[in-house]
């Protein structure tokens, strides 16, 4: 694993890893192509385009066509990585994602760039807090939400090698390296990052390092919090969720709507298998104007907010 460039005091932009890994994959396999919607810059694919202009298929601002073209490229033997802001990829082109990629079961890799509230002040038209809920019923579309450069690279390498549709959520928010306990990513396998018995915090993506920070705060208060990396939304590690319920209280944390995403998936699993008190940290719906940091703070997607949710879940199990 090559080192990603640090952007600020030990923080990384996973798009840099995305760009570097795509070039590495393309060097090794000429079937790899990228498909973009005038998003070469925002996907950080300028270097890729310079090296392989003919393998950079820019359809312009036309997301429905972009996803259909991806499916067609797969039909013609290519391995297309369709890279576009997640709000437009999963919103504007949702029917193409459903019919041309998932239902047709084509070898297309969808890369949802700058998901969640990454576009901050630009507002809910450009936010993608719905993507996980929209994609989750597409059961054969493997869906991963990487948390840091290491996991991003592993997810992309997995996607390239896997024969079938994959969605990778590519965040731009600066994140620290997460101390992973595993190498690579195995579909449907959660990763227990920290043991704990009082409460389990299930998180992924940008929120994973914040869940670890919340566990530190809780430990200082004598609360033992398990932290589980639920990078795979689909397939979901049902066993890990049921195990988490063994602590008696569960908190989900995601940079997404609390309806239908990780929180929804975990709630379904708990209700069907092992109901325990649960709290969901995420966004309740369209968010007001504000920077990313303001919105994270405002809605409690912080170490303090997560630990407060954990204490609330614990208090409910003692009722």
């Amino acid at each position: 694993m090559s080192a990603a460039p640090k952007i600020d005091a030990g923080l990384y932009d996973c798009r840099d890893t995305f760009a570097r890994t795509m070039e590495s994959l393309a060097e090794a396999d000429e079937r790899i192509v990228v498909v973009v919607n005038d998003s070469v810059g925002s996907s950080k694919l300028g270097g890729f385009k310079k090296r392989w202009p003919e393998r950079t298929i820019n359809v312009g601002i036309a997301e429905q066509n972009m996803v259909g073209v991806g499916a067609g490229l797969a039909n013609g033997g290519k391995i297309p990585f369709v890279s576009c802001a997640s709000c437009f990829l999963t919103g504007r082109a949702l029917e193409q994602v459903k019919a041309d990629v998932a239902y047709s079961n084509t070898n297309v890799k969808l890369c949802g760039q700058s998901p969640g509230i990454a576009y901050g002040e630009l507002g809910p038209t450009h936010h993608s807090i719905e993507d996980l809920a929209w994609l989750r019923p597409l059961t054969n579309l493997l869906t991963i939400v990487p948390s840091d450069p290491e996991e991003m690279e592993a997810a992309l390498r997995f996607a390239a090698a896997y024969e079938g549709p994959v969605f990778v959520r590519v965040s731009r928010y600066p994140v620290p390296a997460v101390p992973h306990t595993r190498v690579g990513v195995e579909p449907g396998k959660a990763e227990v990052l920290r043991a704990g018995d009082d409460v389990a915090i299930l998180a992924h993506g940008v929120m994973l390092s914040r869940a670890l920070a919340a566990a530190d705060r809780l430990a200082a208060e004598g609360v033992s919090a398990r932290v589980v990396n639920m990078a795979w939304m689909n397939p979901l590690d049902v066993g890990a969720v049921i195990d988490a319920a063994g602590t008696g209280a569960v908190v989900t944390v995601e940079e997404a709507s609390v309806r239908g995403g990780l929180g929804g998936a975990v709630a379904e699993t708990l209700a069907l298998n092992r109901p325990v008190p649960m709290e969901m940290v995420g966004f309740p719906g369209f968010v007001p104007t504000g920077s990313v940091d303001f919105l994270f703070e405002h809605f409690g997607l912080t170490a303090a907010g997560i630990s407060a949710a954990a204490l609330k879940a614990i208090s409910r199990k003692r009722q």
Binding site: N65, M66, G68, G76, Q96
Partner: peptide
């Protein structure tokens, strides 16, 4: 409206290959 985008992708793949 799904067929033509996929056909375009197939044709681009053929050209590339």
């Amino acid at each position: 409206g799904h067929g033509l985008p996929v056909a375009v992708g197939i044709a681009i793949a053929g050209k590339l290959s």
